[in-house]
Design a binder for these strands. Sequence first.
DNA 1: AATGACGCCAACCGCTGTCAG
DNA 2: CCTGACAGCGGTTGGCGTCAT
Length: 310
Amino acid sequence: MGRPPCCDKEGIKKGPWTPEEDIILVSYIQEHGPGNWRSVPINTGLMRCSKSCRLRWTNYLRPGIKRGNFTAHEEGIIVHLQSLLGNRWAAIASYLPQRTDNDIKNYWNTHLKKKLAAAANSISASNRHPIFADATFPSTAAAAGGSHTLSSNSDVNQMAAIARRSPFADCPSSSYASSMDNISKLLDGFMKTNSPSPPPPPLQHYDGDYYDDVKPAVDVGGNPLLSFDCMSGADLDCCFDVHPQQPAASFMEYGGYGGGYGDESKQQLMNQAAPPLSSIEKWLFDEAAAEQVADLMDLSDGCCSVPMMF
DNA sequence: AATGACGCCAACCGCTGTCAG
DNA sequence: CCTGACAGCGGTTGGCGTCAT
């Protein structure tokens, strides 16, 4: 289908935004709030298409955006979530509210992916776990009941190492950040007059969007389940079965590669105060998990020298 | 000092999902 | 149900800054 791009109209300005345009846009949003982007260029007189206005706001002007260096913790989360969710940058960004999806995408493409690829080149096939030597992997894993979104085998191998040992921690901060000072001052007033803002971290949400592999299933009693299978970056495959109406009756399974996708470790999550999906999120942010995996991996100091992975 | 190569990132493009009429 | 409008997302690109020669 596809509709004609909104920016094909004549008289629509493209390219970098000027400070004056930024101020106009911020002033308008300050008054009317974000949203209804179609009306923004009409009401402000900006010679920009609505899409451009939205992008400028969400990627640059929105309050609470953090620029500059990614911390090792942020890197760990990104790599962790990327291995779990794939290139779903908006979903990943929702776990890093101070970062935009564009920022994360750029950082992945320019730093992390490159680093992972370089490290992967150094990994000899003999060092890899047998499951990775199987050319049909990950299809075999999927057939076995697991599913994942790993872009490459090396993602798993390097993730924990990157989470623990950031090679980019000393990167010079973006000079761009300092250019934001004036706009930040402008936004101070906005933030004070528009509480609550910025949007809170969506740690509580579970709408099916962030877990790719939600699929219909039933429990032993025939009750509907949402089943979320994943191969985590922590080299554990896991399965969360969630009763939509009875989260407390849900359970989570963990299994290691060595044992396949089975039952060797099953943990009942019956805590009413802590629904299972909180456990998922806890797991996602559990730095200790990455540490454990890194220890298991027996990584050497050089990230291009990776011994036995498992 | 000049210039070519390279890296980074803001912005654009095209597609998909959603929803109202 | 169909269609069109809109918002949002992910991939890609172009321009600018930096570094190497």
